[in-house]
Design a protein around this nucleic acid. Sequence first.
DNA 1: GTTGAGCGTT
Length: 301
Amino acid sequence: MSELYIRVAEDENEEPMEIPSEDDGTVLLSSVAAQFPGACGLRYRNPESQCMRGVRLMEGVLHAPENDWGNLVYVVNYPKDNKRKMEEIDAASAVKIKRGFQKTSDLIVLGLPWKTTEQDLKDYFTTFGEVIMVQVKRDAKTGNSKGFGFVRFTEYETQTKVIAQRHMIDGRWCDCKLPNSKVHVACPDEPMRSRKIFVGRCTEDMTTDELRQYFMQYGEVTDVFIPKPFRAFAFVTFADDQVAQALCGEDLIIKGVSVHISNAEPKHNNIHQLFPNFPGGSASLAAMFDRSQYQFPSSHV
DNA sequence: GTTGAGCGTT
């Protein structure tokens, strides 16, 4: 109750980082994840038993043991396996890469300050890994930045890391994403397993932040979408499709309400809704789309 | 000479 900050580290022997607590003495999982992307909880060594203990987590809120965080160093938990760290998860996905041989692709960098140059971008992103291309998109006439650009890394691991976090560049928070044109091109012949879940029976008081905080315990959340006006459901997207698939069919309790998790259906399931003038039947078209790398514009797949 | 969600002239 007394501390404004609690000390958190990836490992007991590593340099701890101070994480702010809330007014009621709790700590938001999102506060931890802001410094340790992908974190799903905390643990600590109980001074009496010398055993590791989990910190109580309810709906994205971490509660102090014995109502007092004390002076302990708390250790970050990562999804799937408490002993497994983010690097090891990345290593696991590196196995997939070997199999499917995933190349790196250009990443779009959104939210750049107007003044940021390509040299600035290169200097910043080189701190993550070797950079092979940077671009700042500019108006052809004036030369003014359009506020976004592109970056390409040599290592796929670097790309994964960069996408997973936000970036403070010249005083503004920026996001790096796979460009729309490249989404799902990375693994063309893999069957599409959605990273997005449908959350049914939502109540109107559930906010995107609350849903994000809740679902973070299962894995890294990359997007939360609540249709407006209220329609009693939401979409949550995870970084890992396995996390999304594992939750399907579950009934989960959020803010005391039972919500139902199922697969997110594509928003558009009729080709002719997208291309009303396209000749011929839809069967061959559908087959074509199954094999294509096309992503439905602004849909929730 | 302004701006702030988005998606790439060469």
